[in-house]
């Protein structure tokens, strides 16, 4: 459905996207995961014809994003990071405006608007101005706006950015629903590991404009330390340094990290590892209040692949120019 080959975008000397290649299959939810400023939005903008690639090619639904941009536009919907709605227009007027841009005939459009508003439970606010809506309501509107033309491909750029947990869950459920029911191919960008993990069939991890890993969530996690790894979280009220050292010295243990004064997180290999660790704690007269067997998170994956934490990167990147905005060329 989507094919990118060596897609590159430079803003002056700054390379935002660096020879990125990937394919997205029909009906798939594909995630682009990475910290702010990694180049996710620029990839989305190039695929949705809003920005021209400096190098490389891409096609959406078989149409070239540069040569056949008009065709591409007919088949896509875009939910960008900035909400594409007019505050002074009502919910209905907003949807009507964008619907008419896609030449949807009036009667059909009215039906479509009612249907979409019902889907996100905004029917009651049909004739209220969008400016009066809460952030969650606006984002739901923003998503259904992109659904008006029944797109085959939907681009979602940080769809849950700035939403409270409950609204985020609602949006995610809605994304899954439209993917499932309408067979819409979805590309979504996020900096949240949890979100990518929950929604995406496959995930491309992006760092400094490059795809550094691309696989299913399960396979990416296996990258961390092989298939038979165990991650444990233990709560021990009388945690001591000696105890940690003795666990670290165990052969089966890969790493130990201390979360707070009573909790430690242990990565280990092998079938016997669980017993060995418990024995080591007992031998140090440690009490165990709780044990949790953890799955590796994408945080672990990102750390493993890039060698730095997502948060570190995000903080450092915040000072960089926001290159998802169209920037003036050097004249």
């Amino acid at each position: 459905m989507i094919k990118a080959v060596n897609l590159t975008k430079k803003f002056g000397k700054f390379t935002a996207v660096d020879h990125v290649s990937f394919e997205v299959k029909k009906g798939e939810i594909f995630g682009l995961l990475g910290p702010n400023g990694a180049g996710k939005t620029t990839i989305i903008r190039m695929l949705s014809t809003l920005t021209r690639p400096t190098e490389g090619t891409a096609s959406v639904g078989g149409y070239d994003v540069v040569k056949e941009d008009g065709r591409v536009r007919e088949h896509i919907g875009l939910v960008s990071e900035k909400i594409i709605l007019y505050d002074r227009l009502t919910a209905k007027e907003n949807l009507w405006f964008f619907g008419r841009l896609y030449n949807i005939p009036g009667e059909l459009l009215n039906k479509k608007i009612d249907e979409l508003l019902r889907l996100v439970e905004l029917t009651k606010w049909k004739n209220s101005q969008v400016g009066t809506f809460s952030t969650g309501m606006r984002q739901r509107m923003n998503v259904i706006r992109a659904m008006l033309n029944m797109p085959e491909v939907l681009f979602l750029d940080e769809p849950t950015l700035g939403l409270d947990p409950q609204s985020s869950v609602e949006i995610r459920e809605f994304i899954r629903k439209i993917n499932h029911e309408n067979k819409v191919t979805i590309i979504l960008t996020t900096h949240m590991m949890v979100e990518a993990d929950m929604l995406c069939d496959r995930i491309g991890i992006i760092d400094y404009g490059k795809i550094v890993a691309l696989d299913t969530s399960t396979n990416l996690k296996k990258l961390v330390s092989g298939a038979d790894s165990t991650i444990l979280e233990l709560e021990t009220p009388n945690l001591t340094t000696d105890m940690i050292h003795s666990i670290q010295s165990l052969k089966c243990v890969n790493s130990v990290s201390q979360n707070n004064s009573t909790r430690i997180k242990i990565t280990a290999n092998g079938d016997e590892s669980f017993d060995t660790i418990i024995d080591a704690i007992r031998a140090n007269k440690g009490k165990i209040i709780s044990v949790k067997n953890l799955e590796p998170t994408l945080e672990d994956v990102f750390l493993h692949i890039t060698g730095h934490k997502v948060r570190d990167k995000a903080d450092q990147k915040i000072k960089m120019p926001r290159h998802h905005m169209p920037k003036p060329r050097v004249r």
Partner: peptide, 15 residues
Amino acid sequence: EREIGTLDGMMVAPI
């Protein structure tokens, strides 16, 4: 419209 991002909504439509 370009600044607040709504222009993209028009630019991405087949018009």
